[in-house]
Design a protein around this nucleic acid. Structure first.
Lengths: 152, 152
DNA sequence: CACAATTTAATTTTGTGCAATTTAATAGCC
DNA sequence: GGCTATTAAATTGCACAAAATTAAATTGTG
């Protein structure tokens, strides 16, 4: 077991590295396609969630994207400064902050329609392949999340 | 095209989000398994690369992991402070910094052998499934990287 | 040989991402 | 009604990740 040749510790055998480095490549690939919108990839995801449903609490956005307030709060403040969203306390439950779209944020949606098309080409795989791969990954994601508590 | 129901901009259709959020879940899942080694997941990857081949330039590590010096330099400094690696300028080419393993860094490898086994269980899929998925992702990664220049 | 172009790594800046703590508000319970 | 537990955001601290800039060294070309 001492030789790396027989070890489990070979990078090229790692499914984890494939996920990790593909995700990094993904962010880099999105960057030029999002440059016209002046959005980062995580910011783009937040906008997608808001285009699907205007006016959501931070919590709700976080659940959909799997991100917590430590990540979302500064990101949302940047989107607010950019004039794309509004942040207002929920009057009926002051713990919550409701996120809404400004006119500019709403208007950006039309421009953004081209992004999935451009990325679809970059992926260079069929719709069917994409669906299968997506489903496999989301299943893996669930297993990973479920395994976290066991390991603690 | 105005209704989100018919739009391309639906989060649940996004292969990219599946990759992104699986990668996030991955880091979280590794954390408790790496806690005993006091390593983060990217630090662990660097150690894996060094266990495969001692004494590499920063550039070489960066190519294998798809990371640049902006990410690696501070990470490597932390590993140096932790006493796991050494950083020395290449005497024959002073631009390069050679990274080597300390005895402690070398010794950690044995402890680390258990990590891929534990993560294999967390993935909850067969060796064959893992290999297929890994290959699909690495192919996708290549396509994404290749597409970046086109988009600029 | 000289000099521009390239290469390599470090540095700086901006933006996530997560854990842990804090603060404020709500909900449950006696 | 008051106490406790829970929930939602924000905050803090630390660690990536990428782009842009800088600095040093090497390479290529005339």
């Amino acid at each position: 077991m001492r030789d790396a040749g027989e070890s489990n510790l070979k990078l090229e055998n790692f499914l984890c590295f494939a996920i990790y480095s593909t995700a990094n490549a993904l962010t880099r690939a999105y960057q030029p396609r999002l440059a016209a919108l002046n959005l980062t990839y995580p910011q783009y995801l937040v906008m997608v969630v808001l285009w699907e449903q205007k006016n959501q609490a931070v919590k709700s956005i976080g659940e959909k994207l799997g991100l917590d307030s430590g990540t979302l709060t500064p990101l949302l403040k940047r989107l607010e400064i950019a004039g794309l969203i509004t942040r207002t306390r929920d009057r009926s439950d002051e713990r919550q902050v409701l996120i809404g779209l400004t006119d500019a944020g709403e208007a950006m949606r039309e421009k953004a329609e081209s992004v999935p098309l451009a990325m679809g080409k970059a992926f260079g795989c069929s719709m069917g392949e994409a669906k299968t791969l997506r489903a496999e990954l989301m299943e893996l994601r669930q297993k990973l999340i479920a395994s976290i508590d066991d390991a603690k």
